[in-house]
């Protein structure tokens, strides 16, 4: 099918983000895509950092001094939020695709996101206070 979207000819990836409607399903789709890209970037950063482990204590232990600072923990909060949003929203996609909760995908999404917020709050509390 031939597309006619002259406004998006140059930046085709903008078609991923249809901001016209802020309905829940659309929001879920955009959130899923943003977190997906973020998590893949994180995955490879993580694997690269783990290379330090291969160099033994002299490579790894200086790194964990940085990793234990509050500023670094802030990045962990972002990671945790991304994982929760992506994972639980993905659960909605998988469940509806297997025929569960199709007619109640909106409440399902809201419930999962509330759950995500609770887990995030608990996680942040544990990270900084625990």
């Amino acid at each position: 099918m031939n597309l006619y979207r002259p406004e998006l000819k140059r930046f085709r990836f903008l078609r991923w983000f249809d901001f016209r409607s802020w309905r829940l399903g659309m929001l879920a789709y955009i959130l899923n895509r943003v977190t997906a890209i973020g998590l893949v970037v994180y995955l490879y950063l993580h694997l690269a950092v783990l290379f330090l482990l291969a160099q033994g204590p002299s490579g790894w232990d200086p790194f964990i001094q940085i990793a234990r600072t509050p500023w670094f923990l802030m990045l962990d909060v972002i990671l945790l939020a991304g994982l929760l949003i992506h994972g639980l929203n993905g659960l909605r996609v998988a469940l509806t695709g297997f025929g569960y909760g199709v007619r109640s995908q909106k409440p399902l999404f809201i419930a999962l996101m509330i759950f995500a917020a609770i887990v995030l709050a608990v996680g942040v509390f544990k990270m900084f206070m625990g």
């Binding site: 790894w60 964990i64 945790l80 990270m127």
Partner: peptide, 19 residues
């Protein structure tokens, strides 16, 4: 993975010997 590495582990992350 998250629980094992960041919540159970002492200081939020393991040093080499702990790994």
């Amino acid at each position: 993975h998250m629980i094992a590495h960041h919540f159970v582990a002492e200081g939020g992350i393991r040093d080499f010997q702990q790994v």
